[in-house]
Design a protein around this nucleic acid. Structure first.
Length: 276
DNA sequence: GCCCAGGTATAAA
DNA sequence: TTTATACATGGG
């Protein structure tokens, strides 16, 4: 990976397996907006744009310092997805297909509170509406930065009432959002502690929030903390197989493929007896 | 109108 | 422990 600044842009060369569309639209995140091939979002309180030009990734509105402190990790740029993909492809034809399908997906390392909220909102919901609700949530309760808004802080949301949240039209999920905000704000949920806790304890800890079940807990551990052990292999492998062989829509399958790459690679490395 | 959408809480078997 | 149902909202 080669990184340099030229005028207002940070350029990153020699990054493989980073398809912007696949990564931002596969369903792991809900806030990236596309304009002429350039994607904008706010993460960690910073407004940023990302694009691709001549096989180089470029960032706008970022400094080298921010790249090294934030974006390098957010985009998971130090993980060799190509190596992972090659390893998996050699293991099993289904994994090979999964890799070929989602080879451009990188697992973003998102902010925990945002992942908690986003996936609470995602329950019994569809992606277009999830995006709209989150967008209204940010516009109404976040702070303006660049062309967009920050994600509303847990502290702020903990002071809101269900009535205040009517404007985002999140339906029955409003009470869940507020309960989550209170427990994050008070420290009852401590994301740092979740990083090293045994998996079962971490899941149990997250589920003290009304509205967080196994699915949301898994997403938080995976998408925010990069706890790859959170991925329940038996269940998800079955889903992957089912989707692949039932002609499921590519978009929906994509996230399973991308997550599978990441997870399975570590899973198989940890269980090296499974490697041929 | 009816069905469904990347779940969860709740009550009942 | 497992299984059924409601839940707010909006799009097909």
């Amino acid at each position: 990976m080669k990184v340099y600044q030229r005028k207002e842009r940070i350029y990153i060369e020699d990054v493989f397996n980073f398809d912007l569309g696949q990564t931002f639209d596969c369903g792991q995140c809900f806030r990236w907006e596309e304009n002429n091939g350039v994607y904008s979002a706010v993460a960690f309180g910073k407004f940023i744009k990302v694009g691709k030009e001549n096989n180089r990734i470029f960032l706008e509105n970022s400094s080298l310092e921010d790249f090294n402190n934030i974006w390098k990790f957010y985009f998971d740029l130090e993980t060799d997805y190509r190596l992972i993909g090659q390893s998996l492809s050699n293991l099993n034809p289904v994994l090979k297909r999964a890799y070929e399908f989602g080879s451009g997906i990188r697992i973003l390392k998102q902010e925990p509170w945002e992942v908690v909220c986003s996936f609470i909102i995602s329950q019994n919901n569809n992606i277009p509406r999830i995006k709209k609700i989150i967008s209204r949530f940010c516009e109404n309760f976040g702070e303006p930065v660049g062309d967009l808004f920050t994600f509303p802080s847990a502290d702020r949301v903990s002071t809101l009432s269900e009535n205040d949240l009517l404007v985002i039209r999140s339906g029955f999920r409003a009470k869940y959002i507020i309960d989550a905000a209170k427990k994050v704000s008070s420290g009852a949920i401590d994301f740092c502690a979740l990083e090293n806790m045994p998996l079962e304890d971490a899941i149990k800890s997250l589920k003290i929030v009304n509205g967080i079940g196994n699915k949301v807990a898994t997403c938080v551990l995976l998408y925010a903390l990069h706890r790859l052990d959170a991925f329940p292999i038996d269940v998800w492998m079955k889903k992957i197989m089912d989707k692949m062989f039932s002609g499921e829509s590519p978009k929906f399958f994509g996230i399973y493929a991308g997550v599978a790459q990441q997870y399975l690679y570590h899973y198989f490395r940890a269980n090296s007896n499974l490697l041929s």
